[in-house]
Amino acid sequence: MEVRTIKVFTTVDNINLHTQVVDMSMTYGQQFGPTYLDGADVTKIKPHNSHEGKTFYVLPNDDTLRVEAFEYYHTTDPSFLGRYMSALNHTKKWKYPQVNGLTSIKWADNNCYLATALLTLQQIELKFNPPALQDAYYRARAGEAANFCALILAYCNKTVGELGDVRETMSYLFQHANLDSCKRVLNVVCKTCGQQQTTLKGVEAVMYMGTLSYEQFKKGVQIPCTCGKQATKYLVQQESPFVMMSAPPAQYELKHGTFTCASEYTGNYQCGHYKHITSKETLYCIDGALLTKSSEYKGPITDVFYKENSYTTTIK
């Protein structure tokens, strides 16, 4: 009895394709271990004539594949690729409408935090270190965002349907971005203890939790000093293409032309909904596939993004 075979390709990165001759009487799992086709788990399936010449994702289970996976995804987590594939199996079914010149995501599976993050990423200057993220990001900007969303979920250790947080998501993504040249110098002034300067680099240099107003941050924000008295913390120097200011959701007025974009969060910790506000020729609110415009805006804002380049204080 002759062994019926077909020729397929296996890959971990969709760049390096490895030619395989597979036995049609055995499952993919018996031949390769966990195997995925377009995100779908085909591990328990036997090869079919229609699979001839198709590319299958496999887990990096030998040295060659491990090197290829690390170079593309910059992670050695053995569960990463499987999590990416199972997320992709959902995100490829989502709709990605162009809204006001940006790629958004039609609401499904509690994905409003991903839509808000995706919209924000198209408006701030950011370059990702893992080629996987950078490639998928370019495709997302062009309207094909399924891979990018699935990668975000995998890097953030999230599953489809789980509630997510924009600030946490951005923080994970910033860790995989090139923020080497970003720098922030802060000064804390206390009447009792004097003053202390701190220099922050990388992710810490672009994120701040405690106030939404970048102007206020430049002037000074009140913080408790270690001595128990009130101290003032203010920005001395900022070198970065953008800054992200966050605070627990509270009524906040966004003035046209003073910011790049913002995240609105309605609801409580267990259950809520994100919308995205962007400042173009007027203010726009993007909620999944829905767009509304207004000249002014007041609502429960939790993150505001500002364009920056270089700032030095005039406070002496």
Rank of each mutant, 00 (worst) to 15 (best):
D77V: 02
Y297T: 06
N110R: 08
V236L: 07
P78N: 11
H273A: 00
G202D: 04
K316R: 15
P249T: 10
Q196V: 09
T260G: 00
E264A: 08
I286S: 00
S104P: 06
T19W: 12
F174S: 07
Y284C: 14
Y57K: 03
S246T: 04
Y265G: 01
S246W: 04
D23E: 13
Y208Q: 05
A231V: 05
K158R: 09
A87E: 00
S213L: 01
L118Q: 01
P248C: 08
H273S: 00
Q197S: 12
N49L: 14
D135E: 14
V12P: 07
G272H: 03
R184A: 09
I105G: 05
T76D: 14
S171F: 15
E239M: 08
G161V: 07
L163W: 06
A142C: 14
S181E: 13
V203F: 06
W107I: 00
L200E: 08
K7D: 10
D287I: 10
L37C: 11
L291W: 15
L17F: 14
N309Q: 12
E71T: 00
Q175K: 12
Y265A: 00
T258E: 13
C190Y: 00
R139V: 05
G82T: 14
H90G: 13
W94L: 04
Y274P: 01
T116V: 15
V189A: 05
V160S: 05
T258S: 09
L151C: 07
V236W: 11
Y57V: 13
K7E: 12
G267P: 01
T120G: 00
E264F: 01
E71M: 09
S86Y: 07
G288W: 02
M245P: 00
G194K: 00
A115W: 02
E253W: 12
T266Y: 11
S104C: 10
T226P: 13
L81T: 10
K93L: 11
G53Y: 12
M244W: 04
E71Q: 11
N100G: 07
F9H: 15
G272F: 03
A205Q: 02
N89Y: 15
A247K: 02
A150M: 05
G33W: 09
V99T: 12
L81M: 11
V42N: 07
I45E: 14
T278M: 14
E253N: 09
R167M: 00
D303H: 05
T312H: 13
E168P: 04
Y311A: 05
N61A: 12
I277G: 01
H273T: 07
N16Q: 08
N110E: 02
C271R: 14
T91D: 08
T75S: 14
M245D: 02
V304R: 02
L212R: 03
S50W: 10
L179H: 03
R66V: 12
Q30D: 13
L186P: 04
D165S: 05
K307H: 08
Y72N: 10
A250E: 15
L254N: 00
C271M: 14
A231Y: 05
K44Q: 09
F148H: 08
Y73F: 10
A250Q: 15
T43Y: 10
Q230H: 08
Q195Y: 06
S246L: 06
K219A: 13
Y252M: 07
Y172Q: 15
T159Y: 10
K92D: 08
I124V: 02
F305H: 04
E2F: 08
Q122C: 04
V99H: 12
Y269F: 15
L186Y: 15
F32D: 13
R184V: 09
A115C: 13
R4C: 14
L186A: 10
G53E: 12
Q196I: 11
T55F: 08
C261P: 00
G82Y: 10
L179S: 08
T278F: 07
F148L: 13
R167E: 00
K316W: 15
V67P: 04
G194L: 03
D180S: 11
L235S: 02
K158Y: 01
K44A: 15
G272L: 08
D135V: 03
Y96S: 06
A115Y: 08
H74Y: 07
V203H: 10
C149S: 05
Y234W: 09
N89Q: 14
N16D: 08
I277L: 01
D62C: 08
V243S: 02
Y28P: 00
T5K: 13
G202V: 05
S279D: 14
A145W: 03
K280A: 12
F242T: 01
P47G: 07
N147C: 10
V67S: 15
E264K: 02
Y284A: 08
E144P: 01
